[in-house]
Structures are given as C-alpha cells and as structure tokens.
C-alpha cells in the first residue's frame, strides 16, 4: 500500500464517511464510496501539496457520490422526474394560484440554543425529502454547484433540475414551518 493510504484512512476516513452519509443517507453506500475514494486516491496519487489532503480527498469523494446519484436517477421512474412545475404543487396552492396555507412568520433564532434546535429541525426535514430531491438540493445549496454542472453530472434537463429544486425548497420550507 502507498504510505499515504493508511494515513489518509486514519486521518480523514471518518470525515469522508460523514460527508458521504449526509448525502447518500445509507451507511453501506457511504462506506462503499469512501472505499472507492481511498482506492482511487492511492491509484492516482495526483495529490498536490498546495491543497490539503482532506480537500483533495473530498473532491474525489464528491465525484464518487455523483456517480452513485447518476445511477440512482436512472432508476427513478420518468414520471417522477418529468413533471410540470405544477405537478404535486396542488397541496401548496389553490386553483387560482393562491397559497393554500399562507406562509407563517418564523421566529428567527437569536440564541445559540435556539439556533441548535433550528439546525436539528432543518436536518430532520432534509432527511424527509426524497433522496433525489435532497441530493440535487445539497449539490446546489450546500456545494454551490452551478445548475449546468448539476444537470451534466446527473444527466437531467435544466427544467427537471429547476422543478426538483423548487419542490425541495417548498417541501423543506413547509416541513420546517410545521416543526419549528
């Protein structure tokens, strides 16, 4: 084994696992992509000293996660992906396009404890989103990938991406409102 391999696994394995788990939400899948990442890392040690090993490894991991998600997207029935922006939004709006339930004002957390509770709710609500929605949403709003990049990576159209992001945000917002 490449000398770095063991060091990388010890130092960054758990971190990479947490990252993978937060995206794939399945411990086995998460272990698998960490393994693939470590193997890819020692096979092609193109690691450059100017970036940290963790950043470099996380970069590889992100690609591995996208590979898994692309496969996952292929398995999702087209009916679930190819939707009008209107579809499944019926719960949110009435026929005339008014809010079925008007958004409430939220108490913005000011104290550390409240902030912690808010993050817990955010976490729970994210985990309740369908995986495909949560993933594309994470790629966009956490990783800050551009839409074009996301569409290319997941092999979906811009309209699909846009609809999925919209649904994710609507669902997440509603879930937070019900629980906060």
């Amino acid at each position: 084994m490449n000398n770095h391999g063991h060091e990388w696994l010890t130092e960054h394995g758990d971190y990479l696992y947490r990252f993978a788990l937060s995206r794939l939400r399945d411990p086995h899948l998460a272990e698998d992509v960490v393994q693939e990442t470590m193997l890819a890392a020692i096979k092609n040690p193109s690691f450059e000293a100017q970036s940290s090993a963790r950043t470099w490894l996380t970069g590889i991991l992100k690609h591995k996660i996208i590979d898994v998600m692309r496969r996952h997207m292929r398995e999702i029935p087209a009916s679930e992906l190819m939707v009008e922006a209107d579809a499944s939004m019926d719960d949110f709006f009435d026929e005339s396009g008014h809010w079925a339930e008007q958004p409430l004002a939220w108490d913005i957390p000011h104290q550390a404890l409240e902030q912690k509770q808010f993050l817990q709710i955010l976490q729970q609500c994210l985990s309740r989103l369908p995986t495909a929605l949560a993933t594309i949403f994470s790629m966009r709003d956490i990783d800050e990938m551009e839409n074009e990049e996301i569409c290319k990576a997941l092999n979906i159209t811009t309209t699909n991406a846009w609809v999925m992001l919209y649904r994710a945000r609507m669902g997440l917002r509603k879930c937070i409102e019900l629980n906060w």
Binding site: A85, M89, F93, H98, R140, W162, L165, Y166
Partner: peptide, 13 residues
C-alpha cells in the same frame, strides 16, 4: 403566488 414562488426559487439558481 404560485408563479411568484416559482420565480423566487429560480432566482436562487
């Protein structure tokens, strides 16, 4: 409101 909510989401992308 429906159209507005769609555009607001789009504006983040």
């Amino acid at each position: 409101c429906k159209q507005s909510s769609q555009l607001v989401s789009k504006s983040l992308d």
